[in-house]
């Protein structure tokens, strides 16, 4: 299966550079795109989905180049963040409509039935969109994205607004898609990436500040994540001084984890999780 090659992509809006010479090589499987607001994730997604044209640089996937947007659109399945579609038509009607719009002519009904089964919405196929829960609408969203078995699936903030149960179910669904396609998940929720992605890129202010596996990222922060314990008063005093990533209140004391390049008195090294590694990376990038 081909790789998605993003080569020195730049996108400028007048003097402002939303993306500055981004280069990424994305292999089939689950790929995460992580970054704070304004990092350029959305711009990159919009370029990948051909909604926006880059100012410079090239993108290719096998023989297909992004200079041929109509060809690219045949390759791509896209689930936008605020997906809801028309509220007054049924799930089957929506999917059949999108299937036709994607140029599917044969076995359209079968394809719709298959994706409904994949996203576990067979029992809701005659319901109107307005009658579905938020999680179900997201599943309809992913169903429409995979209708034509695209080679690249782009998913924007997939779990935003979902309850924990739906979120877990949706992550599982995405995971399954990664078996057969390149799935790019753009999010600012680190947990999503940690749960489903194999590799990721971290963007900040239009630049790639990390590109690699999750393990590599966590290893980068291996020596700089600490765990400490303090009384309630001491903990609140420390909040302003330290980069506290998480905390737990147990037996009238706080146990908390901190990212710091300097050893801290009374602190012990712990193995960092992705969120801590991401915070470490952001801190490093700031310096």
């Amino acid at each position: 299966m081909s790789e998605l090659l993003i080569d020195t992509i730049t996108k400028s809006y007048k003097k402002y550079k939303a993306l500055d010479q981004i280069t990424l090589q994305i292999s089939p499987g689950m790929f995460g795109l992580l970054g704070p607001n304004g990092a350029g994730k959305t711009t990159l997604m919009r370029i990948l989905t051909t909604i926006v044209e880059p100012t410079a640089g090239t993108i290719t996937f096998g023989d297909v180049t992004w200079k041929q947007p109509e060809a690219v659109r045949q390759l791509i399945g896209y689930l936008p963040q605020k997906f809801s579609l028309y509220k007054h038509i049924t799930v089957t009607e929506v999917l059949t409509h999108i299937a036709t719009m994607k140029g599917m002519t044969r076995r359209k009904e079968q394809a719709v039935a298959d994706v409904l089964e994949k996203v576990n919405l067979q029992d809701h196929r005659h319901k109107k969109i307005k009658e579905l829960s938020g999680g179900m609408v997201r599943r309809v969203g992913i169903a429409q994205a995979i209708l034509h078995s695209p080679k690249i699936i782009v998913v924007d903030e997939p779990t935003a607004g979902l309850d924990p149960q739906e979120r877990i179910r949706f992550r599982k669904l995405l995971r399954q898609l990664g078996k057969e396609a390149t799935v790019i998940v753009s999010t600012h929720i680190v947990e999503d990436i940690e749960s489903i992605c194999d590799t990721l890129a971290v963007l900040k202010k239009g630049h790639v500040i990390f590109n690699g596996s999750l393990q590599t990222l966590t290893e980068m922060a291996a020596n700089d994540v600490w765990e400490m314990e303090a009384s309630k008063e001491a903990f609140f005093d420390a909040i302003d001084e330290l980069d506290i990533i998480s905390s737990k209140y147990e037996n009238h004391r706080y146990r908390y984890r901190v990212v710091s390049t300097n050893p801290l008195p009374g602190a012990k090294h712990v193995t960092p999780n992705l969120e801590e590694a991401y915070m470490y990376l952001m801190g490093q990038a700031q310096r």
């Binding site: 919009r46 989905t49 051909t50 909604i51 109509e70 659109r73 045949q74 791509i76 896209y78 936008p80 605020k82 997906f83 809801s84 579609l85 028309y86 509220k87 999108i98 719009m101 994607k102 140029g103 429409q144």
Partner: peptide, 16 residues
């Protein structure tokens, strides 16, 4: 219905 972007990514989607 936030579907504008979606149709923009379909082949000749917006035009159709």
């Amino acid at each position: 219905s936030s579907a504008e972007e979606l149709f923009g990514t379909l082949p000749y989607g917006k035009q159709a």
